[in-house]
Write a protein that binds this DNA or RNA. Structure first.
Length: 114
RNA sequence: CGAGUAAGCCAGACGAUUGCCCAGCACCUAGUUUGCGAUAGGACAGGCGACACGAAAAUCCAUUCGUAUCGCAAACUAGGUGUCGGGAGGAAAGUCCGAGCACCAUAGGGCAGAGUGCCUGGUAACACCAGGCGGAGGCGACUUUAGGGAUAGUGCAACAGAAAGUUACCGCCCAGCGCCUAGUUUUAUAUGUGGGUAAAGCGAAUAAGCCAAUUCGCAAAUAAAACUAGGUGCUGGGUAAGGAUGGAAAGGCGAGGUAAGAGCUCACCGGCGACAUGGCGACUUGUCGGCCCUGUAAACCCCACUCGGUGCAAGAUUGAAUCGGGAGCCGCCGCAAGGCGACAAAAUAGUGACCCGCUAUGCUCCUUGUAAUCGCAUGAGCGCACUGGCGACUUUGCGCCCAGAUAGAUAAUCGUCCACGACAGAACUCGGCUUACGGCUUGCUCGCUGC
RNA sequence: CGGGGUGUGGCGCAGUCCGGUAGCGUACGUGCUUUGGGAGCAUGGGGCCGGAGGUUCAAAUCCUCUCACCCCGA
């Protein structure tokens, strides 16, 4: 997952939260909104509730790792913000993948590809 | 073996798959810059045609220079692909000190403010470090210490207590006066009231039987005066031994001394001062002196020394960019229309805490916009050896390049092993301090047991 | 990343500069008042001053460390 696919500015986050739709879950929540670009932009949000900077960085790394193999299946032209909850730190990785797939399908961002 | 104490070291390892950031190299694409070449030749003259434009220039051209276009080459920048290399800490943390660096300010003065605080040294500097001095703790190894000045001044010391530093409430002692009690002496009065008895205090004398009377002596009583002793009250004085309190009570303790007492005198101890001794110094040791002066300066303060402010969101470059647009107000010039914005005054803002001062400027409101690159990784750098030093540290030599992101990179998953992984994630950079925390090793001390 | 501030009864705040008694409003309990409630009046309880260490005879207050929360900065 290249850097150019990431949401950067505070403005872009604010746009996504204001316009977007939400799906919730035990481990994380998705917020997504259509953008004018052709590509997908992803932002990760980890609050201080998760712990210190070590815990926050670790949570974001795990989510990036589980998002990476799913990238070809995600509809392009959207801003996607993943809000992390505390379970991300302790959940086993395969169930993290399943949860991500389910939420993407519920959000309607899932595209079946061979 | 246990308890303790000091110092040092490590910060899971290996493999597989999928990925992230930076730098180098190679190739491709795009852009910029530079260099080279090309963008017509020739005419007596003129014309025609030709010539990308302009200048040197005065017919055209050639030539040269500049610009433009095209081609080639090189360099740089950006993107992509491939390959190779590197990729969090001992605290990266807290932001408590000290610096570098950057901008602002920096004529000078006044008055403040902040910090440090035993000595000597180390360092770029420090509130850090080392070695010592004095104090404190520990059986010890050892640890710890904001540790100048309280005779420069001011304040405070609640409650309690007589009193919190020139004080006298009680007590103790002395003197005077008053009262009370006891004793002694003197004087005066009275000892036929009741009972009892021959007899009226007792005895003696005048004196003879009794009584009375007189005198003397004795006994006891009352009153007055004087003296002595004791008690008590008041007044005046002496005293700092003792006194319920308090964190702290006027150097401690003993002896002498005194009316009672007191460093009033003396011995010892402690403190202070002077002198001498040793030491660079903090200080140590000794002698002498007078005899003491409470505590608190992490209370104000005094003394000595140090200190400009703000911080990489500093700041620089590019960019329309301390922007631009609109409305209102103020001032100045002008007869006015209109123009201008102090280089009058006033005002405002910025300034180095503040003031004198200095500098700058029209002011207020609304709207819009606020990006990229650099700073940014060779540094008071790290490692090894060596020189000097008890040590902190340092001299010299050799070697090394060791994160540089910008919503923020070191990972995810699986397997094997072991000690089963604690605290914890760079954000301009260093030197310290403090706080959090897993494991290992070594030296030393004390105790117990065995040989 | 840098700078600054605040923690005191259940709640909102004084007191901290300049050290000795912790107070105010509201809430709570009891009584009075009222037919009853509210309001009002009287009265009472409730706090080791965020935590640890130090200075001091004595600390909410002074100093150091630490924890939590809040604010500001192109």
């Amino acid at each position: 997952m290249n850097r150019s696919y990431s949401l950067k500015r505070h403005k872009e986050f604010r746009f996504t939260y204001r316009v977007g739709k939400h799906t919730g879950g035990r481990l994380f929540a998705l917020v997504f909104a259509k953008n004018r670009l052709r590509k997908l932009q992803v932002g990760l949000s980890a609050s201080k509730k998760l712990g210190g900077s070590v815990q926050r960085n670790r949570a974001k790394r795990r989510i990036r790792a589980c998002l990476h193999p799913l990238l070809p299946n995600i509809r392009t032209g959207y801003n996607l913000v993943v809000v992390l909850r505390e379970g991300v730190l302790t959940e086993p990785f395969p169930s993290l993948m399943r949860e991500m797939e389910n939420q993407l399908k519920r959000a309607g961002l899932w595209v079946e590809k061979p």
